[in-house]
Amino acid sequence: MDFHPLLLFVHVAGVVVWVGGMFFAYVCLRPEAASQLEPPPRLRLWRGVLARFFTWVWVAVAAVLASGLALLLRIGFAAAPPHQHLMLLMGLVMIAIYVFVYSVPYAALSKAVAAEEWKAGGAALGRIRQLVGTNLTLGFLTIAMGTIGRWLG
Rank of each mutant, 00 (worst) to 15 (best):
K111D: 03
F24N: 03
I95W: 12
F100R: 14
R30H: 09
V99H: 06
P39W: 00
S110M: 08
A78P: 01
P82R: 09
R44E: 04
L50R: 02
A25P: 03
I128N: 01
V10A: 10
L131P: 05
A66C: 09
V64H: 01
H11N: 06
I128W: 03
V27A: 13
A115K: 13
E117L: 10
V113D: 01
P41S: 07
Y98E: 15
L86E: 07
R150L: 14
V49A: 12
H11A: 05
T134R: 09
V104S: 06
Y98T: 12
M22Y: 10
E32F: 08
A78K: 10
S35H: 12
F140E: 07
A34T: 03
V57R: 02
L92R: 08
L8K: 07
A112Q: 10
V59Y: 01
G146R: 03
Q36T: 10
L141Q: 07
A80S: 15
N135M: 14
Q130H: 14
L89M: 14
F77Y: 15
L8T: 07
T55R: 14
S67V: 01
L109S: 04
P81E: 11
V10R: 00
E38C: 05
V15M: 15
M22P: 09
F24V: 12
F23P: 01
T55V: 10
P81H: 07
T55P: 00
H4C: 01
L29V: 15
P105Q: 06
I95Q: 13
L50F: 13
R42C: 02
L73H: 12
R127Y: 05
F24M: 11
N135Y: 05
V27K: 08
Y102A: 15
I148Q: 12
A63Q: 03
G139Y: 05
G121P: 03
P41M: 10
L43H: 00
H83C: 09
R44W: 02
V132W: 04
A62K: 02
W46L: 01
L71W: 08
V64L: 03
T137V: 14
M22Q: 12
L37H: 00
M94F: 04
R47L: 00
V16I: 15
L37R: 00
L8Q: 08
I97A: 11
A70N: 01
V49Y: 11
A51P: 01
R42E: 04
A107Q: 09
L141Y: 05
L125H: 04
G91W: 09
Y102S: 12
L89C: 08
I97N: 13
F54R: 04
A120N: 12
P81A: 13
Y106P: 04
Y26A: 14
A114V: 09
R44M: 02
E32G: 07
W58K: 11
W118D: 06
L29A: 14
M87A: 14
L131S: 05
A123M: 14
W118A: 05
P81C: 06
E38R: 13
A112I: 13
V101E: 11
V113G: 02
V19R: 01
H83N: 12
L50N: 07
G126V: 03
D2Y: 04
R52W: 07
